[in-house]
Simulated scan of single mutants.
Amino acid sequence: MTLFWRIFSLNAAVLAVATVGLLLGPVTVSTPVVLTEAVVLIGGLAAMLVANAVLLRIGLAPLARLTRTMTTIDLLKPGTRLPVTGRAGIAALIRAFNAMLDRLETERATSAARALSAQEAERKRVAQELHDEIGQTLTAVLLELKRVADQSPPPVRDQLRQVQETTRNSLDEIRRIARRLRPGVLEELGLTSALRALTTEFSTAGLAVQRQIGPDLPTLSEDVELVLYRVAQEGLTNVARHADARHAALILRREGDGVELRIRDDGRGVGTASEGAGIHGMRERALLIGAALTVAPGPEGGTDVSLRVTR
């Protein structure tokens, strides 16, 4: 029976019972209406309305759950499904909604994988150009400045030395940007060395980053290592930019057959602010490898970001 006929049947049943009660009962209506008759009619009407409301609430309860789920669903937090309850049309609607979520999550994961793959390729290209072209150009400028400075009188030589120092700082900054765009240490020395270099880079004035990397980590694929590195990078970037923290910790340890990455800080915490692009990016990367990402307040304040990867 469809939802329409179910609601129609409920209303028809209530009206039929009321009609039979009027026909077979001792109640009559006078002209003008007597007070006792009015009280009986109003009481009967109230009873019909209450019975109708209760029956409809029971019958439409699965639709209310479906509505709440539809307004709060987040494809970046997969796995939310409604239990198939109710009859006929309502059960079919819930099954169709769950199937739609399956399809949307699959399509989003596929499109996100293509987008992030293209993003990594673009990062690699830009990093290569920064290193090979701009880096080499600045290196040539440094050599030329040194040659000119060696042949210049002392006042000009001092100014050229300052220009050399500024150019050298710019070259170091370009190399740092290139490393962040495409960490060569990750490809050459592995995840552990890359995370050590990352924590050292973020251990700047005002922020101390501790690391705890387990010695018994399982063998991980290149995609998993890249996602772990990018999540750690984004997590520490958020700490440095937004958390107002003095201490942070990066923890990578074995958990069963998989690994868990945690980034904790003693900053101001997430509060009631909505998730920004950085956390959304981490969630999309987690979906690529079927990992679970949680962002929650830390046990002693601050923020606790956890990425669990299962094999």
Rank of each mutant, 00 (worst) to 15 (best):
T219A: 10
L181H: 02
K146Q: 06
Q159E: 12
R176I: 07
A149V: 06
T237P: 01
S193C: 02
L191H: 02
G235D: 03
P218I: 04
L195Y: 02
G206W: 15
A232N: 01
E225T: 12
L228S: 08
V239D: 04
R147V: 03
A194W: 04
L189T: 06
A197S: 05
E187M: 09
R176A: 15
R211N: 01
A208R: 05
L142I: 15
E188S: 10
V231D: 06
V209L: 06
R175I: 00
P215N: 11
V163I: 06
Q212D: 14
T204S: 15
R182D: 14
G206D: 12
L145T: 07
R168L: 15
T237K: 13
Q164Y: 13
S170D: 08
K146R: 10
G235L: 08
T200M: 12
P218Y: 13
D172K: 14
L217W: 06
L236C: 10
N238V: 07
E187I: 13
L145M: 11
E201S: 11
R179N: 09
Q233G: 05
S193I: 06
L189I: 01
T204Y: 06
Q233V: 00
S203N: 10
V224G: 01
A240L: 12
T199P: 01
V239H: 05
Q159W: 10
A149E: 15
S221A: 14
T192F: 04
V148E: 11
S203H: 09
L220N: 14
L143A: 11
E222C: 01
E144K: 14
R230K: 12
D172A: 15
L181P: 00
Q162R: 08
L198T: 00
P183N: 10
A205C: 03
P183T: 06
L195E: 01
P218M: 12
G235K: 07
T204D: 13
R182Y: 13
D158C: 02
L145C: 04
R179K: 07
R230E: 15
L226N: 04
L181V: 08
D150K: 06
R180W: 12
R182H: 15
V209G: 02
T167F: 05
A240R: 13
A197F: 02
R230L: 13
E187N: 09
G214R: 02
D172Y: 03
G206H: 14
V148W: 08
R230W: 09
P155N: 08
T200N: 13
I213L: 10
Q151V: 04
G214A: 11
E222W: 07
V209Y: 05
G184N: 06
D172P: 00
R180G: 15
N169L: 13
R147T: 02
L181Y: 00
T167W: 05
Q233R: 13
L195W: 00
V209F: 04
L171V: 09
F202L: 13
Q233W: 11
P215H: 11
Y229P: 03
A194Q: 02
E225I: 10
N238R: 07
L207I: 02
S152M: 14
T219G: 04
R176Q: 15
D223P: 02
T200K: 14
R168W: 15
L142M: 15
R147E: 09
Q210I: 01
Q212S: 14
P155C: 06
L236V: 07
G184W: 04
L186R: 01
T200C: 05
